[in-house]
Amino acid sequence: MDKKLHAVSPESGLNSNLDLTPQLAQFSSAFLFEPKNIVPFETALGWQKNFQKSLIAKPFSPQAVWLLEHFSCYTIGRGGDKNNLLFEENKSPVPVFRIERGGEVTHHMPGQIVGYLAFNLSLHKKDLYWYLRELEEVLIDVLDLLGIEGKRVDGLTGVWCADKKVGSIGIGCKRWITQHGFSLNVNCDLIGFEKIIPCGLDKVKLGKLSDWIPGIKVCDVKPLLRESVKRRFKLNWENI
């Protein structure tokens, strides 16, 4: 290779910031749904699908955020590897769903807050890597408020405390309208993770916030998450 090529530093060139996506909206609006009861996975999936459909039809109508808990279940992304399920899919004690998001298998159960976000990224930034990093920031901000140091691991998606993964992220997108989102382990029973290779990561250790703050409950964390999402994505909550 010709070293002369670098006589002019490419970094100082035109490409230092190629992202010209306009920040269309300072504030966009969204409905916030926080069901009191535990929600079956397929019910919430239906809500999301309907919402995504209507946002595709009317891209500038209000977006939506759900913060909820699921009954125990496993979900796998469309590209997910079934070998990460350490049991036979049809003999699973709890339901297994193959869903339209990226990533490998994960586990939901009571005591874990699941956040679903139906956003029109055209109003934010049309960049899915940016969106994944922002979702991580949402969780890291919440951990920070709780006095726990959350961090990401380079090359992976999710949020870790020390060496334990507490937050998982997986999203799907159509015409820049998102679905799915994140999950944060609060005080759940992690035993179900032993039956899978979470996120396809062989040696990953799972953690929950109650490991750091004994006695913490979902209802303590939800308000922080709600605010964190609102702040990070510059949302106004619509009146329901």
């Binding site: 992304g77 590209g79 890597y129 999203i171 997108c173």
Partner: peptide
Amino acid sequence: IVEWLKNPGDKVERGESVLVVESDKADMD
């Protein structure tokens, strides 16, 4: 490419999802 939602020869309409692409933890129709 995670999945082709259509097979060669299938009719597709404008705006209809044809395949799913994945990068990192994100899927896109």
